[in-house]
């Protein structure tokens, strides 16, 4: 993958683009009206390649979380379309959207990821339990061993460290074999060592298990774990970068941090 220009709406609809796990087509998201009007997403089109680790980068307030929420069916769009596989989210009612999230999407948030009254294991199997599905034992074991939490499964979240909690959250996101996992700043609250553990784990789940992951971050070091970085600025996709390193990403980011530059 080379450093290319941002994907356009037309490119997304090319026949060869079929291997996208999710895509946003010409998505806009506007909050408020009048003086308080904020355009959080401004005609954004992105495709998330299947089986890859995609990072979404950008300065604070650039619309990263909004994009993720819209793509994951947590929030509605003002205009445009969002697809997970070939299901168009913008057409689904709450009931179907809930089911889609439950069965086809995994989530990792920055914090408050776990239900405090459930044990680590119960948290991991939560989406499947809610669906009334039996977890795939073998797969569950693989996931648990990969996150390295076998001896902590009976603990409640309050008895786990922040890093361990995030790893449980990652395990939950992966345990139901979702088509795609969305992670919003999963390491934002962690020290660098715990953060590295979580990121390493996410990367290996992509490499070894073929998982599709989208991660929102503003940390270049975190972005370096990914296969592809999409850069967002002022609600627009302004660039993308393949095979990122922390230095290259940092360099690119510096451009955004200066107001008025680039975009």
């Amino acid at each position: 993958m080379t450093n290319t220009a941002p994907i356009t709406a037309e490119e997304l609809n090319r026949p060869g683009a079929a291997d996208l796990a999710a895509r946003a087509q010409d998505v806009s998201k506007v909050y408020g009206s009048g003086d308080a009007r904020v355009v959080a997403l401004d005609h954004v089109s992105v495709g998330i390649p299947r089986g890859r680790f995609t990072a979404i980068m950008g300065p604070s307030g650039s619309g990263k979380s909004t994009l993720m929420h819209c793509m994951a069916g947590l929030d509605s769009v003002s205009s445009g379309q969002v697809l997970i596989g070939d299901v168009e989210l913008t057409r689904l009612d709450d009931k179907r959207l809930t089911r889609l999230r439950r069965d086809r999407i995994g989530f990792v948030f920055q914090a408050f990821n776990l239900v405090p009254t459930l044990t680590a294991l119960e948290n991991i199997t939560l989406p499947m339990d809610i669906a009334g599905r039996k977890p795939d034992r073998e797969w569950l074991d693989t996931v648990i061993d990969t996150v390295g939490l076998r001896d902590r499964l009976r603990h409640r979240p309050s008895e786990l460290s922040g890093g361990q909690q995030q790893r449980v959250a990652c395990a939950r996101a992966l345990a139901s074999r979702p088509e795609i996992v969305f992670a919003d700043e999963p390491t934002g609250n962690l020290d660098s060592r715990s953060g590295a553990e979580v990121l390493g784990f996410l990367r290996s789940s992509v490499r070894e298990m073929g998982q599709t992951i989208v991660m929102v971050t503003h940390d270049p070091a975190a972005a370096a774990y990914s296969d592809l970085v999409l850069f967002l600025s002022d609600g627009r996709v302004v660039d993308q970068m393949g095979d990122p390193t922390a230095e290259k990403v940092l360099e690119r980011m510096k451009g955004f941090d200066r107001p008025g530059s680039d975009a």
């Binding site: 009931k95 809930t98 999230r101 439950r102 989530f107 408050f112 809610i130």
Partner: peptide, 16 residues
């Protein structure tokens, strides 16, 4: 609130 939001995010239906 947060916990309920989380449950909803990971697919708990309103009815549940």
């Amino acid at each position: 609130t947060r916990e309920i939001g989380l449950l909803r995010a990971v697919g708990t239906s309103r009815r549940q």
